[in-house]
Simulated assay, not measured.
Amino acid sequence: MTEPLPAPAQEFPPTLREVMLRGRWIGVLLLCLVVAGVFAWLGQWQLARAIDTDPPPPGATEQVRPLTDVVEPGQYLPEPLGGQKVTTSGEWVAEDFIVISSRFNAGVEGYWVTGQLRVADRTSIAVALGWAPTREQAEAAADALAGQGAAEVELTGRLIDDEGVELPPADDVFALTRMSPAALLSQWHDVEQLDVYRPYLASLTAPAGLVDIDSPAPEEKSPVNWLNIFYAAEWAIFAGFAFYLWYRLAKDAWEREVEEFEDAHA
C-alpha cells in the first residue's frame, strides 16, 4: 500500500512586523530618525530661548544710568533696555530744533519739539524735549531754544527705539510724524562724519513753553516667551510625525502585499 503524498505547505501572507524588518524599511526608519533628531534639536533650541534665565531685576529701567553705559552710537537698543532712564550732557545744535506732529500726550494729539544734542565730538543723539498742544506753541518753543545758541545742558530721559521712517506728504517733504533719528539726521546741520545714536532720548523735564512728555515706565515682561514654547511644541509634533509617516508607509506596503496575496490565492 502506497503512502499518501504529504500535503503542500500552507502559505501565509507576510506580517506587518516582517515587512517593517525588511532592509528597505529599516533604511527609511533610519532616515526618519535623522529627520526626527533634527526636529528635536530645533525644538530644544526654541525651548532654550523661551525662558529668560537672567531677566533684569524689577524696576531696572527706573535706575538712572549714564548713556554710554547703556548703548553705543550706531548700535541697536537691546530689548530689555527699552525705556531705560539715562543721563547725559552736551550742547544743543541751535539750528536743529524740529517740530514733529501726531504726538499724543495723555491721549491728546499735539506736537513734539526735538533737538540734536551733541554729546561728544562728532557724536549726537536725538532728543524729544517736550510736548505742545498746537503747532504754533511748538514752533515758538523751538525758536526760543534756538535763540539760546549752543547751550551746555544735562538731561535725564528714557531711551526709546527709533519709530522708523515714514514718507512725508507730497505738499510738505520736510514734515515728520514719527520720532526717527534717521529722518531727523536728513534735516540736521553739520552731519559730516557724525556718529548718531539709533534710539532717541525722551526728556523727563520739558523746557519753558512745553509740557513734559508722557513717558511711563515700560511694562515688565514675563521671563517666559510663550510663542517660543509653542514653536518648540510644533517641532516635537513634527518629530513624532516623522515616525508616524514611516509606520504609515510600511503599513500601506504591507496591506498591498496582503491584498495581492489574497487575490493570487482566491
Rank of each mutant, 00 (worst) to 15 (best):
E3I: 04
P13Y: 10
V19C: 08
V19T: 14
M20P: 00
M20K: 10
W25A: 07
L29S: 13
L31I: 14
L31W: 11
C32M: 15
V34P: 00
V34W: 10
W41S: 14
W41C: 11
Q44C: 01
Q44F: 14
I51S: 05
I51D: 04
T53K: 13
D54I: 06
P55N: 05
P55M: 08
P55E: 00
P56Q: 07
P57N: 12
P58D: 11
E62G: 08
L67T: 01
V70S: 06
L77E: 00
G82W: 07
E91M: 11
W92T: 02
V93Y: 10
I100E: 00
R103A: 02
G110S: 06
G110I: 02
V113F: 04
Q116R: 13
V119D: 00
A120M: 03
R122V: 08
I125C: 01
I125A: 03
A126V: 11
G130I: 01
T134F: 11
Q137F: 06
A140Y: 02
A146C: 03
A146P: 00
G147T: 04
A151M: 12
E152L: 12
E152M: 12
E154M: 12
T156N: 03
T156W: 01
R158F: 02
D161K: 09
L167P: 09
P169T: 03
D171K: 05
T177S: 15
P181E: 09
L184W: 06
L184K: 04
S186Y: 02
Q187L: 15
W188P: 00
D190T: 07
L194C: 07
Y197A: 06
Y197R: 05
P199D: 04
A202S: 14
S203E: 07
T205K: 13
A206V: 04
P207H: 06
L210Q: 04
D212Y: 07
P218F: 08
E219S: 09
S222A: 12
P223G: 05
V224K: 04
A239S: 12
F243H: 08
D252I: 01
A253R: 13
W254A: 00
F261T: 01
D263P: 00
A264G: 09
